[in-house]
Computed example of a mutant assay.
Amino acid sequence: MAGIKALVSLAFSASIGLMFLILACALPEYNNWWPFFVLVFYVLAPIPTIIARRMSEDSGGSNPCKELAYFVTAGLVVSAFGLPIVLARAPVEQPVIQWGACALVLSGNIVTFLTIWGFFVMADSDDVEYSMW
């Protein structure tokens, strides 16, 4: 039963993160849909780690496949945090997004990436039947 509670709490926190992202796009003072491009990073970030866990054997030492997957995943996460900052600091007469929208996207990034990390932690535990990943 603890696995179901963890899964429900992860789904709730993912919906909170997406709510921050939607608010950054849809509030009348921001009214700009450029921050939605962060969704690409939400989809791409866990893929290298999932592939590396399926391809590599489970040994106690360092595994180059997993190390490369963690490096690519870290690059995608940093890019997800960098995109709204670059959009807010665009060197034009008026920035592409406002700083308030940037703050909402960054807070949504924190919540969503912590949710993704929490899913991988939960899937690695032995007492949950979702450990097929």
Rank of each mutant, 00 (worst) to 15 (best):
F12M: 12
N63C: 08
A101D: 02
P91R: 03
W33H: 12
G17I: 01
F37C: 14
P64H: 08
S59H: 14
P84T: 07
I16E: 12
L87I: 06
F81L: 13
L76V: 05
S9D: 10
N109V: 06
I16G: 11
P28V: 10
V8R: 10
V86A: 14
S56G: 12
N32R: 08
C25W: 07
I97H: 02
G82E: 13
S56C: 14
N109Y: 04
P28Q: 10
Y130T: 12
I110E: 01
V86C: 11
Q98P: 08
W133I: 15
V128W: 10
L7Q: 05
A74N: 05
A6G: 08
C65P: 00
P48Q: 05
C65D: 05
F20E: 10
F12S: 09
I51D: 02
V72N: 03
L83F: 11
F71C: 05
W34Q: 05
L27P: 04
T112N: 04
G61V: 13
F41Y: 13
S79M: 11
F120R: 01
N63D: 15
S13I: 07
V96P: 00
Y130I: 13
A123D: 04
F120G: 02
G82A: 15
A2N: 12
V43G: 02
N32K: 08
Y130Q: 11
G75D: 03
L27G: 11
L87F: 09
L7W: 03
L114V: 01
A26N: 13
Y30Q: 14
I47D: 01
G60H: 11
G60C: 12
I16D: 07
D126F: 10
L21Q: 12
F71W: 07
L104F: 09
